[in-house]
Amino acid sequence: MKDKIAVQVDDLTVAYNYKPVLWDVDLKIPEGVLMAVVGPNGAGKSTLIKSVLGIVKPLAGSVKVFGKPYEKQRRHVAYVPQKGSVDWDFPTTALDVVTMGTYGRLGWMRRPGAKQKKEALEALEKVGMLPFKNRQISQLSGGQQQRIFLARALVQNASVYLMDEPFQGVDATTEKAIIRILKDLRRTGKTVIVVHHDLQTVPEYFDWVTFLNVKKIATGPVKEIFNDDHLTQTYGINYKVSIQP
């Protein structure tokens, strides 16, 4: 069934300030999964995503997307950064931010036109933000800002989506809306990788999971590997979480 590998990480090591934050991580993420990356604070979850995207330069190892180096496959990868990583007081509108998702395909100096605008509007529609398209971004709630970021990634129309804590500080409605969209993406064969904090919701939201704490603890289908054993290995001694089947 799931035999095509979407993202392959080999022996990836990243160090900040002389200390490994990711240490010899090997990962094979099959195409079409909706995967959570879980682990304690400082486990290198964001770093993993950022080094897949080439934002962080690894000390060793390589990343391949559909069998080729990431630099050649940028078009197939979309990124949803943490909401807190940008200044939301920036003078721009929701539609404008979403249109930025088309910039990569446009390349240098070409301006977005009617086609790009249409794509952006469609993405806004998908995340339920169409009525807010002309709203200044600082006047959106945290959940709405997160939806805008999601829409921007949707516009990229990629095969692999990397998301850094998309549920951080969003309201319950937005969380439901986002997970619905993610499941839609999976249904159409896209691969979605999400840095996730809330262990309770892992079985409900995701079908694939990676446990990470500097080194890889385990990766695989939620049904098979999401258990107390791996949680304890990841989070430390006697970490218990009640798992609903």
């Binding site: 022996d11 090591t13 160090a15 002389y18 200390k19 490994p20 240490w23 010899d24 090997d26 000390l59 060793a60 080194k215």
Partner: peptide
């Protein structure tokens, strides 16, 4: 930085052997 790079590289390498 240079020294740490080599040392961290070695650590990585050792862990690789370990894994």
């Amino acid at each position: 930085r240079r020294r740490q790079r080599i040392e961290v590289s070695m650590l990585t390498f050792l862990l690789h052997l370990h894994n």
